[in-house]
Nucleic acid binder design. Structure first.
Lengths: 172, 172
DNA sequence: CGCTGATTTCACAAACTTGTGAAGTTAAGG
DNA sequence: CCTTAACTTCACAAGTTTGTGAAATCAGCG
């Protein structure tokens, strides 16, 4: 049988408690679902996050999560599109490995670039069609200003985070 | 007929272009849906946002959005729970008004207090059950540190926003 | 180049969500 | 207290989403 998570029992380190891992995976996935991610991508992502190597194959994911290859395929496609995981072909094998980059995933969380732009566009439309001078128009203009403010602030915050991270966790 | 949005035609100001308002309401609601809000709450909220007085009655909402009283009821209950709207009883009437506080709603967006706490709890559980010393445990610890960092930064950012807002929009 | 194992695509059944009509509850005003 | 308008609750039908099995496609390797 394949050894999930790159930690082979008897391989020099105590075997991971499969049940504890699974418990974490499911509860973390539940958080992701609550935050709007679909169930399968959430579970796959959580499983990858909790693997020591940060990579798992399709088969390993299917076994840990008890889902079909089709479900793994769909989840991975979604995660790759969102830049939350990358795909690697193992040289000399037709097997693929999916990898989570620990430092990229939460950056993606804050990279709402496209999303923020859509909000700003919708709000600008609103200000125009309701009229700048109307109370409703002014309310929307203020909301728009808030988004513009946040947009800039988040970029600065991430710069500070990288410094903070460097200090506490060493170079990436 | 009830006059939606508190702007009575012939009441001294040009009548709002009902179709333009509706177009904005639906497109803004679509953004909210994309961001994870259910359809009805999103539409009700967008309608309130685009009303001049910032308040609408159940009947007005039902007419503008073409939905049943039951749908209005459910949507409003959800929005009130999320502190996105408040309910007011008109004195001397059995009719209720629902109000959006322009400055409260985007604050609520960033007040992920409860949500952030859940994430932090889930991640701490994960660090514990996977082991602080393992690669996976370290990955989770770093993610947890990120959330803690963001938590603090967002609070500071909102302080700066209030100053910025005061300057550009005058006192609330 | 065909064999074979890995991954993807596709149609569908099951499960879940959503909004409605209708009945039920509440409270203002006679 | 009875009437009646306003709001809420509830069961259900319609619509949507989700994950699966099976078939199809892809890519090493002999």
């Amino acid at each position: 049988m394949a050894e999930p998570n790159g930690a082979a029992p008897g391989g020099g380190r105590a075997a991971r408690d499969a049940e504890a891992v699974s418990k974490f995976v499911e509860s973390f996935a539940a958080q992701l679902v609550e935050a709007g991610m679909q169930r399968m991508p959430a579970r796959v992502f959580a499983a990858l996050l909790s693997s020591d190597s940060g990579t798992m194959t399709s088969v390993e994911l299917g076994e840990q999560l008890r889902i079909s290859p089709a479900a793994v395929s769909g989840a991975v496609r979604y995660l790759a599109q969102q830049h939350l995981v990358s795909r690697e072909r193992e040289p000399g094998s037709r097997r693929e490995r999916y990898r989570v980059h620990s430092d990229q995933w939460y950056e993606a969380l804050t990279n709402r670039e496209a999303v923020i732009k859509h909000w700003q566009y919708a709000l600008r439309e609103g200000v125009d069609s309701l009229g700048e001078g109307t109370p409703a128009g002014r309310r929307l203009a203020e909301t728009l200003a808030f988004f513009e403010f946040v947009d800039g602030e988040v970029a600065l915050m991430m710069d500070r985070w990288r410094v903070h991270r460097e200090r506490h966790f060493g170079a990436g």
